[in-house]
Design a protein around this nucleic acid. Structure first.
Length: 154
DNA sequence: GCCAACGTTGGC
DNA sequence: GCCAACGTTGGC
């Protein structure tokens, strides 16, 4: 099994939204490296649901891949903000995967993630990282889940 | 709102 | 193939 981290802006679609809708196509990935990672994902893989552009940013939950990569329909929808007129319908450029919630985490803010020794080499905390889909090692994934499974200190 | 980092585009 | 211009991401 592989492990991943998926970024979403909670103002647009947060972990609570995923819990509410139960499953969701991860649309709008328009970066080749991120897309290639989507294509590597297999049903059953798990991912950290990360809130970006949030106050504060951080890990909000765990989700799983319930459907492997297939063409992201928003690329062909002129009404969508993810519309890509240069994508050929006979050879779609962009894919999505479908995810479902596994469990909410006690929110682990980015500051805490950066402080974790297990995350020292992660793509997430690397300088200048902007990838919205990135792989995690099992050790990294387990460390984030462990941090998010503790009771919040008061 | 600012800005650093970085991907993409297009002229040459 | 280079690289400047431009757009986007995302933390602060």
């Amino acid at each position: 099994m592989a492990y991943w981290l998926l970024k979403s802006e909670p103002d647009v679609f947060g972990y609570d939204d995923l819990v509410r809708v139960k499953r969701e196509g991860w649309d709008g990935i328009r970066n080749f490296q991120a897309r290639n990672y989507l294509r590597e994902m297999k049903v059953g893989d798990k991912a950290i649901f990360y809130h970006s552009n949030a106050k504060p940013p951080g890990a909000a939950g765990v989700c799983k891949i319930v459907k492997a990569a297939e063409p992201d329909p928003t690329q062909f929808d002129p009404q969508s903000k993810y519309y890509d007129p240069t994508s050929d319908s006979s050879d779609p450029r962009w894919d999505w995967v479908t995810v479902a919630p596994v469990k909410a985490l006690t929110f682990v803010p980015l500051d805490d993630l950066k402080a974790m020794p297990e995350m020292a080499d992660s793509r997430l905390t690397a300088k200048g990282n902007r990838l919205s889909v990135l792989p995690l090692t099992e050790r990294e994934f387990d460390a984030v889940v462990a941090a998010g499974s503790r009771k919040r200190r008061r």
